[in-house]
Amino acid sequence: MARDHLLPRRRLLAAMPVLLATPALAPAALAQAPAWPDRPVRMVVPFAAGGATDVSARLVTQKLSEVLGQPVVIENRPGAGGTTGTDYVAKSAPDGYTFIMASLSTVGLALGLYGKLPYDPVKDLAPVAPSVLAPIGICVRRELGVSTLQEFIALLKANPGKYSYGSAGNGASGHISVVAFLQKTGTQAVHVPYRGSGPVFNDLLAGVVDFTADVPGLMKPHVESGALKALVMATDQRSSVLPQVPTSAEAGLPGYRAYSWFGVFAPAGTPKPIIGRMAAGMETALADPAVARRLDQEMGLPPMRGYTPEKFGAFLKEEIDYWVPLVKASGARAD
């Protein structure tokens, strides 16, 4: 079963189209756009402030505001693993002034975690553009006294159910990443869901929980201070943000993969010209050298460029087809 949770290298590479950027996308779409926006645009983030979705969204929307000529205002609506905010946007008026920076967990994994999700990601949301790929790693608090992934696995095996891990919410990518890790290693730990990654790291540093799975950019300051120990990046290549942290294979757990991605969606029925302009704006923002550098080199979140709304929609369906059966087979539930 553990193998079913793994992401083959070809899928990971396919999810990183940064090298397939299409510069012609932005000018054409901008030229055909209607007189929109004529007032501030709301970008809902379905997690608490301080997490990877929130921080990356704030970075991108700063540039996006310049491109669109109107403020793009972040509004945090956390709860239920991100599904509360996602449902809010799915039921919002399709007038082009409400969007969401969703994640793989809220528009993909959630379909396998909830018996009755209040929205259909494919029918109730219109794909606009992806933002970034989010590789995931595991870090523990220093007081556990482990220096390697194998030492941590041995500690978990010797103390079934003693240690706890925090995640951004039931069904969040970090949650599923740890579920896959526990199943692959035959270990047990207690899940403590939060309303975003920011609160998770606060409690991890305070010793309330013992470990978490998240993106390297959020781990970096605490790893560098010595408060946390990063044990593995669940990828094929080391992170440029935490180059000292071994990959899964290097850490003795070959094949263990974990990732997420973030992307912009609108309520279904939003006029296509508006979706096209927003997609073009996202492409321009992600192509900005300063934005791309901060996302990739400082946060470890490679921009996902070169997507039309149609291509992004096809990508979403592929992700749903791949992940939902695996999530259901894992037995993980969020309701």
Rank of each mutant, 00 (worst) to 15 (best):
G226A: 10
P289G: 02
A102L: 06
L301P: 02
I153L: 05
S164I: 01
P309I: 15
P17I: 11
P273G: 12
S56T: 14
R141I: 07
A158L: 03
L59V: 14
A266H: 04
I274T: 09
G79H: 04
W323T: 07
Y256F: 15
T106A: 11
V245Y: 11
S248E: 06
F152V: 00
A31V: 13
N76P: 04
I153G: 04
T83M: 11
R333W: 10
R3K: 12
G81D: 08
Y307V: 08
A180R: 10
D120T: 09
S131R: 08
G171L: 08
D321Q: 12
D203V: 03
L109H: 09
L111I: 07
T84L: 07
A24R: 04
V190E: 10
V122S: 02
S147L: 00
G217R: 03
R305N: 03
W323P: 00
L125S: 09
L117W: 01
N76L: 10
P160S: 02
A230P: 00
I274C: 06
F265M: 09
A14C: 04
S167N: 06
Q150H: 02
S330Q: 13
A49S: 05
P267G: 12
V200F: 01
P325I: 14
A334M: 06
F201E: 05
A251P: 03
R141T: 09
A292F: 07
V178D: 09
A266D: 06
F47K: 00
I275R: 10
L155D: 06
A329Q: 15
T270D: 06
I274A: 01
A168R: 07
L301R: 07
D203T: 05
L113Q: 09
G174I: 02
A2W: 14
S103V: 01
L205V: 12
L301D: 12
L30H: 11
P127H: 08
L205K: 09
F262T: 13
F211P: 02
A31L: 13
L19H: 15
K220F: 03
G300S: 15
L295G: 13
L113K: 04
Y163V: 03
T187S: 15
I176V: 12
G161R: 07
S239I: 08
I275A: 14
A251D: 06
A285N: 08
A52E: 07
L113V: 09
S173K: 00
P325H: 10
H222Q: 14
A230N: 03
S173P: 00
P199N: 08
V179W: 01
G137A: 06
L125W: 01
K229W: 00
R141C: 10
G331D: 10
P289Q: 00
Y163F: 12
S92G: 05
G145W: 08
K220S: 10
V209H: 06
F152D: 02
I136T: 06
V223E: 11
E298G: 06
Q183H: 15
D335R: 06
A227S: 14
P243K: 05
